[in-house]
C-alpha cells in the first residue's frame, strides 16, 4: 500500500511540475515576443500559395534562447510521457488497480499532448498566413453551363412519359418495400397494451407465492401482491394496503371494494410507469420514487402531488369464506402510463 502511495506522490509531483510549466506558458513569462506581422507573413497582396518554406526570417538571437527553453520543456514532457507509458505497461501486466492504470495512461497521453503543444509554441515559427476566400457562388456562366449540360443530357434520354411514370412508380414500390420491413420490429399493441391480468375470483398472492388473508396486515401495513399464477408479472403488480375503515373516503360506486380497510391499487405509476413502491401510513400516501408523485389511498389513489395526473387503477377486493382476499373484478382502468385511447 505504501509503495502505491509513494508512486502516487511521485505522480502528483510530476503533475504539479507540469501545471507549473503550463502556467508559465499561459502567463508567457518565458521567452520574448516574436510575433510575425501579418504583412510579413502574407506576402504579396495577390495571395499566391507560398512558393516553398524558406528559412526563418527571425533574428537568431531571440530564437536561440527560446529554442533552448523549448527543447528542454518538450524533452521533459516526452520523458514524462514515456516513463508513464512504461509505468502503464508494468501496471497492466501486473494487474494493478484502476487508479494506477488510468493514472499512468492519462499521464502518458498528457505528456505527449503537452510536448506537441510546447513544440508548436517554442520550436515552430508562428506565421500568420492569409488566404483569399473565393466567393462560394459560381459565376453566372458556370451555373448556366452546368444547367445546360444537365438539360442536354436529359434531352438525350429518349422521352417516354409512360416509362418515366413507371420509374416513379417503381421508386414508390421500393420505398414501400423498405418501409414495410419496419413491421418486423413492431409488436401488435393489442392485446398487450390493454391487458389487465387480474380477473374476478383470483386470489392475491405475495411475491413468495403465499395467499393473503384478511388477518395478514395491520392497519398501516402494505405488501406487494400478484394475481394467482402470475407471480412477478410486472404489469399486474399491485400494492395492497390496509387502513382503518373509518377513514375511507372512496367514491360511492367503490364502497364495497375495500373489505376491512384493505385497498389494492396498481403498482405501476400512471405518470411514467415506475413501480409505486412506498406506502406511508401516517399520511396514507403512496409514493412513486421516480418523480415523487403521491397518491392518496383513502380517496381511490387520487394524485395529491407531483407530476402524475391520473389516479392509480383500483382493484376491487372481497374476502372468501376462508378469509382469503380475492380480486372482485378487474382494475378500474388500464394500469400503467397513459396513452391515446387508453381511458375507457
Amino acid at each position: 500500500m505504501s509503495e502505491g502511495e509513494d508512486r502516487e506522490a511521485r505522480k502528483g509531483a510530476w503533475l504539479l511540475m507540469m501545471f507549473a510549466l503550463g502556467w508559465r506558458m499561459v502567463t508567457g513569462r518565458s521567452g520574448k515576443s516574436r510575433r510575425v506581422t501579418s504583412a510579413e507573413a502574407a506576402g504579396p497582396r495577390d495571395f499566391p500559395l507560398p512558393s516553398g518554406r524558406d528559412a526563418d526570417t527571425e533574428t537568431q538571437a531571440v530564437t536561440s534562447g527560446r529554442e533552448r527553453w523549448g527543447t528542454l520543456l518538450v524533452a521533459c514532457s516526452l520523458i514524462a510521457a514515456i516513463a508513464a507509458g512504461i509505468g502503464f505497461l508494468f501496471i497492466y501486466w501486473t494487474d494493478g488497480g484502476n487508479k494506477l492504470l488510468g493514472g499512468t495512461l492519462a499521464l502518458s497521453f498528457a505528456g505527449f499532448g503537452i510536448a506537441l503543444i510546447l513544440w508548436s509554441h517554442f520550436l515552430m515559427a508562428h506565421r500568420e498566413a492569409t488566404e483569399p476566400l473565393e466567393p462560394l457562388l459560381s459565376p453566372e456562366e458556370d451555373r448556366q453551363t452546368a444547367a445546360d449540360d444537365f438539360c442536354a443530357g436529359a434531352r438525350d434520354v429518349k422521352r417516354r412519359s409512360l416509362l418515366k411514370l413507371m420509374i416513379v412508380a417503381g421508386a414508390g414500390v421500393f420505398a414501400a418495400m423498405f418501409v414495410s420491413l419496419l413491421r418486423s420490429f413492431g409488436a401488435p399493441i393489442e392485446p398487450a397494451l390493454y391487458q389487465i391480468v387480474w380477473s374476478r375470483g383470483q386470489r392475491l398472492m405475495t411475491a413468495d407465492n403465499k395467499p393473503v388473508s384478511i388477518h395478514s396486515l395491520k392497519p398501516g401495513d402494505s405488501v406487494t401482491v400478484f394475481p394467482e399464477g402470475s407471480i412477478g408479472n410486472d404489469h399486474a403488480q399491485t400494492v395492497l394496503v390496509r387502513v382503518k375503515e373509518q377513514f375511507l373516503r372512496l367514491p360511492a360506486d367503490r364502497a364495497d371494494w375495500a373489505p376491512m380497510g384493505y385497498l389494492a391499487y396498481s403498482r405501476v405509476c400512471t405518470h411514467a410507469g415506475c413501480p409505486v413502491g412506498m406506502f406511508e401510513s401516517q399520511t396514507n400516501l403512496l409514493l412513486c420514487p421516480c418523480h415523487q408523485s403521491t397518491f392518496n389511498v383513502l380517496t381511490g389513489a387520487e394524485p395529491t402531488g407531483g407530476p402524475a395526473a391520473r389516479p392509480l387503477p383500483q382493484l376491487p377486493l372481497y374476502a372468501d369464506s376462508e378469509g382469503l382476499l380475492r380480486a372482485g373484478g378487474r382494475f378500474s382502468s388500464i394500469p400503467g402510463p397513459g396513452f391515446w385511447g387508453g381511458q375507457q
Binding site: L100, G102, A110, F112, I114, L116
Partner: peptide, 16 residues
Amino acid sequence: GLFFLVFAVIAALGAL
C-alpha cells in the same frame, strides 16, 4: 496535441 489532452483528461476521469 489536443487529441492527446482530450484522451488524457478522459483517462484521468476514468481512473479517478
